[in-house]
Design a protein around this nucleic acid. Structure first.
Lengths: 229, 229
DNA sequence: ATGTTAATTTATCAACTGATAATTAATATG
DNA sequence: CATATTAATTATCAGTTGATAAATTAACAT
């Protein structure tokens, strides 16, 4: 399978040295990362540096002038996707009390899924998780601090409940909603299931059912003593 | 001179071939698959056949007496995990009307997560999904037919709603619950997050909130004409 | 033009990959 | 005990991998 491909590649590379024109280092750097994201999303991190070079129309050793090792390239990929694409306005929108809680949560998930429901975001996130890097830990901590805590507090408030720091059990409850929506994306983008319900409808129904039912559980948790610590 | 000596020493020290005793082919086959599951769960499918052979205390070419190719070994691994570990009693339990719907659903997720919340099950499932094999499609079809449809129908009934075939939107609603619980396992087992809430509590809260709120959405869907098709 | 600098290429390494052929030895069978 | 069978080994191949050193050449300053 890979043999035939490599043979074709070898034939193509035997060309009389296309001798690419030079580029500014910064542009190159960004270009490398961009194409690396594309490739890693398709194949995973085992993708060869030669394959990447070929897609860039460049020789393989050149990559090592810009990244000391393949791992450093991978790190740059992480930064680009999971740090640079985070929007601080998500938190702000969730805390904007001029809007009803339902609208705020739905608007957040509409925009959030627009950001992360791409092969690049989701596939590389799962690849990273399986690899055991700490990206996922750091990202989840951000989600909890910037999204789930605000959602929990805002929801509590909308039910007329106290506004102390959210208990672990409360946060976990909203993780279930987050996970349910996230996994819709995994099914659609990663597993490539034919989805019978469109994204917006799914979000609306999930949030409606959740908000309708979460009140009773939150009330119970507010009354019972904190068991989890 | 020194080289010749070291070469002689190396030859002498080259273990006198531990020469494993023979085993029955069937046992070997099962043993290979078992250890392959272990290895693939750890490293992924790029795990080397030599590493596997070493863990089995066996030479690498021997693997090819039992599996024509590495891909055939991987297929055997899939079968073992995702076909052989499926319990038909899950469906039966969900349809057992002598029990309240809440108890049925909680009991199901308790047992189901006991089966799939292992590194082997979850990691290999994600590896397979990223690889683009059809395992995940087939498995999801089973989940939908054997779990989500029964849950949907049973829940509908418990709310005194009609009992026609479930609409896609209804099924999708229960996929959100399924995905939320599934993703708890991914966070715990794959990402290795320190979980602040134990599995049973998470399941109970998630199911309670869901059942409390799902009624209103189901009623709305029952009244409005089928938009999704 | 001329020389300097650095971007890019060529050539190459050692380690590792899945897979095959030939050989050895343990077991069952007569 | 002799012999056939086959489980398991050794040896090896061809291809791929990440990475390094040295040679080349494009761009730019003078």
């Amino acid at each position: 399978m890979a043999e035939r491909l490599s043979k074709a590649v070898a034939a193509a590379e035997r060309q009389p040295a296309p001798r690419r024109t030079r580029n500014k280092p910064e542009e190159r750097h960004r270009e490398f990362v961009r194409k690396a994201i594309e490739l890693f999303a398709e194949v995973g991190f085992e993708a060869g540096t030669r394959e990447l070079a070929q897609r860039l129309g460049v020789t393989q050793p050149l990559l090592y002038r810009y990244f000391p090792s393949k791992d450093d390239l991978i790190t740059a990929v992480y930064r680009e996707i999971y740090v640079n694409r985070w929007k601080t306005q998500w938190r702000d929108g969730l805390l904007d009390e001029t809007q009803p809680i339902r609208d705020r949560i739905i608007a957040f998930y509409e925009d959030y899924t627009r950001t992360i429901f791409t092969p690049e975001w989701l596939r590389i996130y799962l690849f990273a998780g399986l690899r055991g890097v700490d990206i996922n830990h750091r990202y989840a901590a951000t989600v909890e601090a910037e999204v789930l805590r605000p959602i929990t507090l805002a929801t509590r408030k909308s039910f007329g409940l106290g506004d102390g720091p959210p208990a672990a059990e409360e946060i976990e409850l909203f993780w279930t909603l987050q996970g349910g929506i996230f996994y819709y994306g995994v099914r659609e983008i990663v597993y490539r299931f034919p989805m019978a319900v469109d994204r917006s409808t799914m979000i609306r129904n999930a949030v409606d059912a959740f908000l309708e039912g979460v009140g009773s559980v939150l009330r119970r948790l507010a009354e019972s003593p904190e068991t989890a610590d």
